[in-house]
């Protein structure tokens, strides 16, 4: 009963904090929060594949990058393109890439799946570096126009150079994406997906087609990764090979998901938060972020393989067992 009344209050509190965040914490932390929102969405999109279906991709940066480059190229070359279509183009670019790759990659699983993605991720990184006339090479595409958010006849909100307005756009889009992905896991299809993770053979014997099912999950994961990448590109007003397609862009959501816990939907969000705090702190003392991240990964795998949410659940279970045994003891004594 308690839970039912507390939950809406918590959501309301969260909403209020989100609305007044820029006023409360200033521009610097508002920007930090936008980065967090983008990478949290990205990590959840990766985890839709990793945690819910058991498919590990070492190359999701290609979707993240496809979203970013798609939008940036569209805004650079199409005059007068409105904001929402531009974002839509980024989303569709990533989705299309996933659709093209799906027939190939859904035939393999496990280690081969991970490695194929590593290779394809690297391929797109190299292409972005070498096809200089399209992608701008190492410099990337920067300072492309960012149109205002407009509803014709109603409002027009400028975004370029306005971090607070951009903050609202980003959290609305990222929030919506998270909700859609969460809903996705609650549909009948989402159930099949979890079934594949637990027991692929049985899903087959129940009459579901495995490759097609995997392909849809793959496309959803790729498309939302692309959306995150697209907002990231708009946020920095820059897409570059290292910033949007580099190996770390593929690895960081996996690390976030591992740290937060791949078994739960919200785990990767906590993981991203921890990841960001650590990155922020490390940057202050040293530039050896890679080293610190590596050590964290090793520690997580060796000592807390189910991540923060896993550890919290274990503690909860222990606590329940403890209170139960205590209650029992009181009863007997």
């Amino acid at each position: 009963m308690m839970k039912k009344t507390i939950k809406p209050i918590l959501w309301l509190a969260l909403l209020v904090i989100l609305i007044f965040f820029p006023k409360l914490f200033g521009v610097y932390y508002t920007n930090v929060f936008v980065t967090f929102a983008i990478f949290a969405t990205y990590a959840v999109a990766v985890n839709v594949l990793l945690g819910y279906t058991g498919l590990l991709s070492f190359g999701h940066a290609m979707f993240f990058g496809a979203g970013g480059y798609g939008t940036a190229l569209a805004l650079k070359h199409i005059d007068g393109l409105a904001l929402m279509p531009a974002i839509g183009i980024g989303f569709l670019a990533a989705m299309l890439l996933a659709l093209v790759l799906a027939p190939l990659v859904t035939r393999v699983s496990g280690t081969a799946f991970a490695m194929i993605h590593l290779a394809f991720g690297q391929l797109f990184y190299i292409l972005a570096l070498k096809l200089r006339h399209i992608t701008g090479g190492e410099d990337g595409i920067g300072n492309f126009p960012i149109p205002a958010f407009t509803i014709p006849g109603l409002i027009s909100i400028p975004l370029k150079g306005d971090p607070v307005n951009f903050y609202y756009l980003a959290i609305v889009i990222m929030g919506l994406s998270l909700w859609l992905m969460w809903f996705f896991t609650k549909t009948p299809f989402g159930q099949i997906q979890v079934g594949i993770r637990d027991n692929e053979k049985r899903i087959d014997y129940l009459g579901y087609k495995i490759p097609q099912t995997k392909a849809i999950i793959y496309v959803v994961s790729g498309a939302f990764s692309g959306l995150a990448g697209c907002i990231y590109g708009l946020f920095h007003n820059l897409v570059s090979a290292d910033g949007s397609l580099g190996a770390m862009i593929s690895f960081s959501p996996i690390i976030a998901a591992m740290v937060g816990g791949v078994g739960s939907f919200f785990g990767p969000i906590w993981g991203t938060a921890v990841f960001q705090v650590i990155e922020e702190l490390t940057h202050r003392f040293t530039d050896r972020v890679e080293l610190v991240m590596g050590v964290i990964l090793i520690l997580v795998v060796m000592f807390a393989p189910s991540g923060i949410t896993g550890a919290v659940n274990t503690m909860k279970m222990k606590w329940h067992a403890y209170t139960a045994s205590k209650a029992k003891m009181e009863k007997t004594s």
């Binding site: 809903f183 609650k186 549909t187 009948p188 299809f189 989402g190 099949i192 579901y208 087609k209 099912t213």
Partner: peptide, 10 residues
Amino acid sequence: IRFNLFRHVD
């Protein structure tokens, strides 16, 4: 019911 992505299963 296989590819239903639009309804909450619960």
